[in-house]
Amino acid sequence: MKPSIALSVEDLSFSYGGKKALDRVSFKIQSGDCTLLLGPNGAGKSTLFSLITRLYDTRDGRIELCGFDIKRQTRKALAKLGVVFQQTTLDMDLTVMQNLRYHTALHGMGRKLAAQRIQQELERLNMYERRFEKIRQLNGGHRRRVEIARALLHKPSVLLLDEPTVGLDVPSRLAIVEYVHQLAIDEKLAVLWASHLIDEIYPDDHLIVLHKGRIKASGTVDEVLKISNTVMIKDAFYTLTQGDQA
C-alpha cells in the first residue's frame, strides 16, 4: 500500500514584525516516516511548530494534516496531531494519571476508553507502576515519557516533538530516540522531530536542515550528504548552516 502524506507544508512564511522567521518553507512527511528537523538556535524550528499546532496564524503558505487545512479545518487537523513541546507542559502538582486523564477529557474520551488508552501507553513506556506519583516526584526522563504517552493517547497520525531530549541523560535520551523511531515504523506514524543533536539521526531518517528560516537541504541522510558534498552528517550540518553552532 502506498504511504499517504500525513503532513504537508507549502510555501510557508512567517515574520515577527519586520523580522522574517520562516521563508517559503515547503516539505511533506509520509506516514511511517521519521523526519528530523535540524537547525541551530534561531533557525525557525519553534516557529514552524507553533504554526503547525495553530498557536500562530498561518498568513502565508499552507499547512495540511492528513489532508485537513490547519487554518480552515483546524479542529479536524488538530485531532490528528500529537505534540511534545520543548518545555515540560505537565501539571507538576497532579499525578501522572490526573495529567493524562485531563488530556483524554480534552479529546472527548469516555472514562473506560481513557483508562484503557492510559494503561496501554504507560505500560509500553514502562510507566504504569508510577501512575499515582506526582509529576514533581519524577525525574526528567520519566516526565518526558509521560509527555510522549500523553501525545499518543488520542491515536494521532502525526507526532511533533520539539527537542524532547534536551536536558536528559544519555540512557534516557537513547531510549526515547529508539522508542519514537520504532513507533513510526510499527504504527505508521509520521514523526517530525526538531533537534540539534546529530547523534539522534538514524540511517533511514529523513532530514530537513533549516537555517535562518530557510530550508537548506532535505531528503534522506545520503541525499543531504550529497547536497552538502560531505561524508559525515556533522560536517553536512556545519556546511549547510555556514559554520553556525549546532
Partner: peptide, 13 residues
C-alpha cells in the same frame, strides 16, 4: 511554563 499550549492545541474551538 507551556501548559497553556496543551489546552490550545486540543481539537476544540
Amino acid at each position: 511554563m507551556g501548559s497553556m499550549r496543551i489546552l490550545m492545541v486540543c481539537p476544540l474551538p
